[in-house]
Design a protein around this nucleic acid. Structure first.
Lengths: 205, 205
DNA sequence: CGTTTTCTGGACTTGCCGGTCCATTTTTCG
DNA sequence: CGAAAAATGGACCGGCAAGTCCAGAAAACG
């Protein structure tokens, strides 16, 4: 199915509109009608671009959001080559979630498990894996520089970090406070940094 | 509204049945009909015991599950007075989630945000707070025994632990593997334990 | 033992929302 | 310019599941 520029634009508009809708009202409160209204499209367009119906659209949104999560952390996440970079990444991540508040794209995908199951699950896993991979790379970099304990299992520590972040965001969604996310990040980084000294306040961004 | 023993039993049966249904099929895949079939009750009974309808029932389930989450970690969680107790708690928690796999009662509540919003949010927050409180108490105990760095902020570390656990469970739900949950727990405990030595394999339960 | 309250059964209503269909307009391209 | 393909509009259908209602069975209670 060839897509004319116009078509591609519409499709994109739909995905973005749906993403917004979901961010604001959750996956459950995302009726096709709302998306239609928000994006000024008709039902036939939705089904034209997403023949698989709602699941299809949701999957596209999941992919879209998954990409954004990673992108929003760049370039820091991709170049965790010094402690400075790590702090900057930490601050950026925190700022991002603090700003957006009650939403986690991961949940967009996650909440779908059981519908577009396999596909959504794949997207989620891929996102997590990519995230973890980049963190692990950063840890290895620190190790190579002798900036952290070389005996640490980089992958495992990265996994722990990712878990902490996810949990922090989850709790942010539930409670509206970023304390847990902060705690998870700071505690995780402190562990990497070693027993030396914890980072008391939050230094320069 | 006084409840006869029979009535109370029925009500309880409904809550438990609904909880099961949700565990197996998610909050979305939990139709009242399913609950009725599973608990051998009729629709009028549902609305008799939960006048507020589905939201009301869901809230009751959230409360029920929240209690279980804490209870299932006892007595260890309530008496984290030694490293041994901490490891046992770790193993118990891991076993619990490994067994139940694709479910997190917290999500039961969480997914409702936007429906029975305030009430569900309260339940969730209370659960988190309680969890964190008990962990913090355990950390303070370690500090009192000189078993861990007294400079650590117990509340903050407890918050980080809770976040790691939540994220680990979340990822368990998405991927089916417990690696992240394990990593979060082990990394968190290792941090408490100090730079001394990480716990390589998983020692005695 | 009879009345009152609680409990139970299940038919019925209602509204929502995903999905289908076809007619119409707009774009592409030889 | 004209046919084919793509894009759009919106009426319509159908089913599902929440919620309502009333009638009848079973307890409670004096």
């Amino acid at each position: 199915m060839p897509l004319t520029p116009k078509g591609a634009a519409t499709r994109q508009r739909i995905v973005e509109g749906a993403a917004e809708q979901i961010r604001e009202h959750g996956v459950f409160g995302a009726r096709l009608e709302d998306v239609m209204a928000r994006t000024a499209t008709s039902k036939s367009q939705l089904f034209h671009y997403f023949p698989g119906g709602k699941d299809d659209l949701l999957l596209a949104v999941a992919r879209y959001e998954a990409d954004r999560v990673i992108e929003d952390q760049q370039p820091e996440l991709g170049a965790l080559t010094s402690w400075g970079a790590w702090w900057q990444w930490r601050d950026k991540l925190l700022a991002r979630y603090r700003a957006q508040g009650a939403n986690c794209p991961l949940h967009t995908a996650l909440a779908q498990l059981g519908r577009a199951t396999d596909a959504a699950r794949t997207v989620t896993c891929e996102l997590l894996a990519q995230w973890q991979r980049q963190l692990a790379a950063g840890i290895r970099h620190l190790q190579a520089d002798g900036a952290t304990d070389p005996r640490l299992d980089a992958d495992r520590e990265a996994a722990a970090l990712v878990a902490g972040i996810q949990g922090g965001v989850l709790i942010l969604m539930a409670t509206g406070t970023t304390t847990h996310l902060e705690a998870a990040l700071d505690s995780g980084l402190a562990r990497l940094r070693g027993p030396a000294a914890d980072r008391a306040g939050l230094a320069g961004s």
